[in-house]
Design a protein around this nucleic acid. Structure first.
Lengths: 351, 351
DNA sequence: CTGAAAGCGCTTACAG
DNA sequence: CTGAAAGCGCTTACAG
């Protein structure tokens, strides 16, 4: 019966389909949802399926959600879309969500900054089935809201005292990998440009750096840590500090790719040759790392897996139980050209 | 009456509030929604407001949406979260959405690649009040879906034949600004690394490049265009081509920041000095541009405004009328260190 | 000034 | 094997 197709202007409802197929709406509903208990004559089923197709039926999400108290939506909140680290996490989360028929509502601190409360309020209205939270703005002092919403949540890449549901990466291992690489190249004076003091990832990477230094038999005189924001500007300032210290290191492990870009720039701007006079390795890879000059040696972390598994865990977890998960994906060193053998003493004196 | 607060485990509904305040749900509803026609005794209003607050009432989005056929949600689809250009657009869109009490559902081509149809289907269920679309995957061959959904939509930064609702930037002007800057530095042999042939932005930037060249009295022998993807890899390949041509240009206008990073890298890798031997200017700025070596001269485009205005236009527009808008925000040259005076002939011969 | 009622489009336990 | 009915939580024209 062509020509009937899509009663223009009005959405097709279950009732339309039921009338068209000559059955009750409940039957159509069960067929749409593949109800396993449904026992229906094959010919009826066919008739309904034909009607569904012919009318172009799509279930109304609001009605379904009102009835079932489920939305098929997850909230994902992060500090900054411009940060490549988060871009990769979102993408992983998105893929996992799509696989499970979920859709992602996203928000960044840019907005929340001015009105976090108002923004979160929108989510308190039963718009989402769960919350994925990362970055300082969305994980600090949020306990009260989380309780009010009574929603399952998961902190991404960050642990916060009092919130025992999080998923993180093996940041210590990443830092160790970076240090070991430099030690293998003969470096002993290895500084660490760490992240901000309030970042959990920064603490873990710093711990990994110190572990690896000690494991290599290096002591206090070789260990040097300077905190910086996870931004290029932060990296610039930190590198300037590193290079102005009396006992200049021959290599630097930078805790984050954005600050590493700033750090590299500062070293070059001060006339240092990288890697001949200073080796730099960054934690986190980026599509851009290979196109810097020199191409940056990095430790790639499984950020995509982090986002992917975050969604999976959130959806399969009981809403209340603690959930403390470390992603097992590959954390690997990618050697490019910003790291090299330790400069000989004469060469160093030469500068 | 403290202690009554939040009947744990069950959401507070309008009925709860009404019972608590001793009025009908309709009165509460009108107060919640600031119904201007409502005429209620001040004391009643106070009583209801107190109950609202005490019980911590939040309207249920699904019920409201079912009743009003409005969702308070907008869909934003883009090619890639990792692209800094889109990051800025999202942020602008997010701010505008938040201002109007809307929330953003986002999706990228990463997911849609495998299952665009399935992903878009989720939106056909009345989940969003409008659609913001950008990138090839979400704007090509989408006419049928758009018609089915019967949703207001707006293409961002892209025009597509047959879809007369779009918002774009003044790409021609941006390219002209870049060329004029180089001409002011004495360059005449100015090549253009353009975007992919199927990108509308690429066509417009190329047109701007050619206009400016002609306006400066330059002809076919100075005009040279090579297409590239908007990626670092694309920029590398294009620059290699540019530099291997017989008549090597002294300056290059790159249509996109990502490919400019690749192009800069390729030039440096081939031993060229930038800007002494080759000037490079990119269209689109990026937080990273200042930290490349040398810092990249760019043309900043009002991407934030693009996202912001896209949401505003979408929300205030009638769903059917054509909507063809060019963002008026500032398009400005940011001179850093990748551009300089044209090299003297001897210097050029010297290489 | 306030209330009763209908209905948005679904799902699901229950009846037959 | 299929249908009738209730109800999720709202909003809004209407009545009084």
């Amino acid at each position: 019966m062509p020509g009937l197709r899509s009663i223009k202007g009005k959405r097709v409802t279950l009732a339309d389909v039921a009338a068209h197929a000559g059955v009750d709406t409940s039957v159509v509903s069960r067929i749409v949802n593949d109800d396993p208990v449904l026992n229906v004559r094959p010919e009826t089923r066919e008739r309904v399926k034909a009607a569904l197709k012919e009318l172009g039926y799509r279930p109304n999400a609001a009605a379904r959600s009102l009835r079932t108290s489920q939305t098929g939506t997850l909230g994902l909140f992060l500090p900054d879309f411009a940060n490549p680290v988060y871009a990769e996490i979102i993408t992983g989360a998105e893929v996992a969500a799509a696989e499970q028929g979920f859709v992602l509502v996203t928000g960044s601190s840019t907005v929340s900054g001015s009105s976090r409360r108002a923004y979160l309020d929108l989510l308190g209205q039963g718009r989402v089935d769960g919350l994925l939270l990362s970055g300082e703005a969305f994980t600090t002092d949020i306990r009260k809201e989380l309780q009010e919403f009574d929603l399952p949540y998961l902190l991404i890449n960050r642990r916060v005292r009092g919130l025992n549901r999080y998923i993180i990466l093996d940041d210590e291992r990443a830092a160790r990998l970076a240090v070991d690489h430099l030690i293998g190249l003969g470096h002993t004076a290895i500084a660490h440009i760490a992240g901000p003091a309030n970042a959990d990832t920064a603490r873990r990477r710093r711990a990994g750096y110190e572990q690896a230094m000690k494991a290599a038999g290096l002591g206090a005189k070789d260990i040097s840590v300077i905190a910086a924001d996870y931004t290029p500007e932060g990296g610039v300032r930190a590198m300037e500090q590193v290079l102005s210290s009396k006992r200049r290191p021959t290599a630097v492990v930078v805790a984050n790719i954005a600050s590493a870009i700033g750090a590299l720039h500062a070293a070059l701007a001060m006339g240092l040759k990288v890697p001949e006079e200073l080796s730099i390795v960054a934690i986190h890879d980026s599509p851009l790392a290979a196109f810097l000059t020199p191409p940056l040696t990095t430790v790639r972390m499984p950020l995509h897996d982090l986002g992917y598994q975050a969604v999976q865990l959130l959806l399969e977890s009981s809403r209340t139980k603690p959930l403390e998960h470390v992603v097992e994906g590959p954390t690997e060193l990618i050697v490019r050209s910003s790291t090299g053998p330790v400069p000989s003493t004469t060469a160093r004196r030469g500068r």
